[in-house]
Design a binder for these strands. Sequence first.
DNA 1: GATAGGACCTACAGTCACTGTAGGTTCAAG
DNA 2: CTTGAACCTACAGTGACTGTAGGTCCTATC
Lengths: 146, 146
Amino acid sequence: MIGQLARRTGCKVQTIRYYEQIGLMPEPVRTEGNQRRYGAPHLKRLAFVRHSRELGFSLEAIRELLDLADDPDRSCATADSIARRQFDQVESRIARLQALKRELKRMIVQCRGGRVAECRVIEVLADHGLCVSDHGNPPVDKLAVS
Amino acid sequence: MIGQLARRTGCKVQTIRYYEQIGLMPEPVRTEGNQRRYGAPHLKRLAFVRHSRELGFSLEAIRELLDLADDPDRSCATADSIARRQFDQVESRIARLQALKRELKRMIVQCRGGRVAECRVIEVLADHGLCVSDHGNPPVDKLAVS
DNA sequence: GATAGGACCTACAGTCACTGTAGGTTCAAG
DNA sequence: CTTGAACCTACAGTGACTGTAGGTCCTATC
């Protein structure tokens, strides 16, 4: 039963079905009434996926890591480089967020309350020239962490 | 012409049209041939939007901020609280990413190369129990920074 | 054996903030 | 008058889910 697997892994039922749909989880056996029945390997695999997601890996990266994990005799150089890539991404995200944090702080500290016309927050937002640090480019990101 | 506005703000043409579609940018006048023509206020507004996005504000928050900016006599308390909320979010994202970074580092450092069977990276991913810090819950996020 | 209700099923739409594509039109330069 | 870049609309796709509608199945209780 999918609900039990969901409870044990802290993953939503729909998410499990979604992982199956995109081929990240293998199709389990079904009961006569067409309901999914899982075993220990499914639990292990899903735990791997969830943990990797918590560490910020993309589903694509996880797919690669699972392929590796399925074949214990291969070299682990690939796993290592995927992890390093992830590490680098996290590092640069932190750096960007810290620049951002400084800028937001400056913005807030300078606001003395009052009318919008004198609001430092609005003023800074309207003019990037008022920023000290280079807080960089659009924050578009699909793989980030709350 | 939309291309010029795009170049001046570092924003893609489609993005400008998208902002218009969702009501973030006002509809500009059109030439006889149905092409958009913009003026200084559009440039100002779009610059505000882009800068706010760079600082990680959601389009919803930007909508509120624009409403405020349009009415200089109102109190800036709302702008201030939106900025503070954003600041708090950035702070907690940094904290989460730092826990994550520590965990990734540990994982990578312990990997001595060799076969997948002995790979520390794979092993840690398979078992959250091997983590020291609590790197928290799913990294689902729509508003993060690259 | 009937029934209630919780858990399950599929299929599809929606989220956020864009980005890309197809297929057609307009504009400015030469 | 022709070329070709820039424009137009409308819609699909991205990542990683989440939510909904409308139906079926399973188990416990009566």
